[in-house]
């Protein structure tokens, strides 16, 4: 056995170029994998700008950014959940309920006829109420998942239905509109030349990047997603971390709900339908592994921009909405296949 080994080593030593070549292609493909979302985004922008002269304009750029800001809010929360190897299907319905509660409290307040009292809410009050609702629903998600070991898919699917039903009950199936100029500023205003929703989503992204990279909670999130048993054995309170993550996702869905309601100047009972799918798509396209432990917030932002640019481009190119769904689905499928291939090669 030993002479054969010697021969192999000797061959390797006399052929240095063949050793270098794979090393070069390895680093090249590593770069390709690392920047795959950015490359895809660049190619997408290039194709659309060649086909439509309206795409590469400042107005359209801000339009796309304003549109994707809601998806970014939700996707950031979804990324944290997916990093723990979970999923949150309830975000779209939570968004609708929080938007409805925000609008309802702002417009109608709370009436207590027996006491002849009217409790009105200021802008700060309704925003806090919306956030609290989202966070509580997220906490409920986390509690059912950790306390009763209900699979995240099922637990959040149940909350999806509950929240949608509560939205219908609260709004009686009708939109709540006419919310005033102050509230509209959240979704339609500009601050220092940048749309307010873009500021909000930018701040959320900054905080989430800090959370995942610089805090103990961030490290715990990756640890739980990577290997939950090992994380438990190393002393991490799995239930607490997971519940916190779902609460954050709920809170971020609420922010999305407030932005949507403000932009439309109306809380629609059917708002946010299938938003969870766009969020999951952004997460997956951004390179976060659905099995948890691997991915990043900035990757998700890239994913959300790709989805937004794709939506915008298909509209500008006058593609039928039915075909738009087909194209989006295929892009998501492609992203998952690439992700699987990358995982295997690693």
């Amino acid at each position: 056995m030993s002479p054969k080994v010697f021969v192999k080593e000797e061959k390797a030593q006399v052929q240095p170029p063949t050793l270098k070549a794979p090393a070069f292609s390895g680093s090249y493909s590593r770069y390709l994998v690392k920047f795959q979302s950015l490359i895809a985004l660049f190619i997408l922008c290039l194709i659309i700008s060649l086909l439509s002269d309206k795409f590469l304009t400042v107005a359209n750029g801000w339009n796309v950014m304003r549109q994707i800001s809601v998806n970014i809010c939700i996707s950031v929360g979804m990324t944290l959940v997916v990093l723990t190897a979970g999923i949150d299907l309830s975000v779209g319905s939570v968004l609708a309920l929080c938007g409805a509660i925000t609008a309802g409290l702002l417009k109608f307040g709370i009436e207590l006829p027996s006491q002849d009292l009217f409790i009105g809410f200021t802008l700060l009050g309704v925003v806090l109420a919306g956030l609290l609702t989202g966070t509580l629903l997220g906490t409920f998600n986390g509690w059912t998942i950790t306390r009763f070991k209900v699979p995240p898919f099922v637990a959040t699917l149940a909350v999806l239905t509950i929240a949608r039903g509560l939205t219908m009950l609260y709004t009686k199936g009708f939109p709540i509109s006419g919310l005033g100029a102050d509230f509209a500023y959240i979704g339609t205003g500009w601050l220092l030349g940048i749309p307010v929703p873009v500021w909000i989503s930018g701040i959320i992204v900054g905080l989430a990047v800090f959370l995942t990279n610089k805090t103990r909670l961030g490290r715990y999130i990756y640890a739980i997603g990577g290997n939950e048993s090992a994380a438990r054995l190393s002393g991490i309170n799995i239930s607490k971390v997971k519940t916190t993550v779902y609460a954050i996702a709920g809170g971020l869905a609420a922010i999305g709900g407030i932005i949507v309601t403000s932009r439309l100047d109306s809380a629609q009972p059917n708002a946010g339908i299938s938003y969870e799918l766009d969020a999951i798509a952004a997460v997956v396209i951004g390179g976060t592994s659905l099995s948890g432990g691997r991915g990043s917030i900035l990757g998700t932002v890239q994913g959300a921009i790709i989805i937004g640019v794709l939506n915008n481009g298909l509209v500008l190119l006058n593609v039928s909405p039915f075909w738009q769904q087909v194209v989006k689905g295929m892009v998501i499928l492609l992203a998952v296949i690439i992700d699987k291939a990358n995982s295997k090669s690693e």
Binding site: L112, P113, D116, L117, F118, I119, G120, F121, G125
Partner: peptide, 12 residues
């Protein structure tokens, strides 16, 4: 204090 205000329902 900055989030809510209370009034008489009949007046509102």
């Amino acid at each position: 204090y900055n989030s809510v205000y209370i009034k008489k329902l009949s007046e509102v």
